[in-house]
Amino acid sequence: MKKIDKKEAGNRLRRFLTERFGNLEDAAAYLDTTVSSLRNSYFNGQSLPGKAILEKLKADGCNIDWLLFGESETMVKRLGYPEYRIEAAIPAGRGELVDLSEWYQSDVLDYSPEDHVFIKVDSEFGYSMMPLIKPDDLVLISFTAPVYDGDLVAARWDRTKGALKLCSFPPNDRTMVMLSSYNSAVLPMVFKKNEIKMYKVVLIKKHGSKR
């Protein structure tokens, strides 16, 4: 789990409370604490807000990820999007789960329909990416997100042809792009960058999951 800089978290807490309430007296009253406690315990980095205060801050719109870790530029959570609790951190290899429930972290699915669309994996020709992606799965693609080496993308070429692949950029020729399947038995495809359009996959909705 990432280490929290208590002093920086205190600075962000001061900023949020000042902008939200205008004065520390009203902020302290809302949080059921005192101004001296805010200053001496939290603002100076002596301790972090407990779960009760974090819940009040979150209910008032504070982005807890921003408050504790500074990982988001957004101080206030965007309203109108579903928000999901981050319960734990899990390793990709061997390791132990890290319980995050006490930190009251969460994130939102804030994909705007203005620049995101779902595409459906073909039920007949959708087997080269199994078991990562299966036929009839839905993938959400972004028209604006940058594509990086190793990203899952929806690619189009020759106007009518396309595929869902893992993209990579050969280090010896950055003008080319290679599209690979999750199934290693399927040979990769290589294109010039200017011959292809790629759209980053930002979410996978597995077929049969509840709507």
Rank of each mutant, 00 (worst) to 15 (best):
I196T: 06
P146Y: 01
P113T: 04
I204S: 01
R159W: 14
D5L: 09
P91N: 04
C62R: 00
K77E: 13
A163H: 07
G150P: 02
N194C: 05
K7E: 08
Y104A: 07
T160P: 09
F169W: 05
K193W: 00
F21R: 09
T18Q: 12
L57N: 02
K205T: 05
K134R: 13
E19T: 13
T33W: 07
A28S: 03
V121H: 01
V147R: 00
V153T: 06
K210T: 13
D173H: 03
R94K: 13
S112P: 01
Y148V: 04
N63M: 10
L17C: 08
M129N: 02
V139G: 02
G50R: 00
I196G: 04
R156K: 07
R159K: 07
Y111F: 08
Y182T: 11
D60I: 00
M189Y: 03
A163G: 09
P49A: 09
P170I: 00
D151L: 04
R78N: 14
D151R: 01
G150D: 05
K56R: 13
D137V: 08
T144D: 07
P188K: 03
A145G: 09
L13S: 02
M198D: 03
N194E: 04
E25S: 14
A185R: 10
M130N: 09
N44C: 07
P171A: 03
G50S: 03
L166T: 08
L100A: 15
E124A: 10
S123I: 08
A89H: 05
L17W: 00
T33D: 00
F43T: 08
D115Q: 13
V153S: 06
L109C: 13
R174K: 04
C62W: 00
G10S: 05
E114A: 02
I86Q: 04
A59I: 06
G150I: 02
S142W: 02
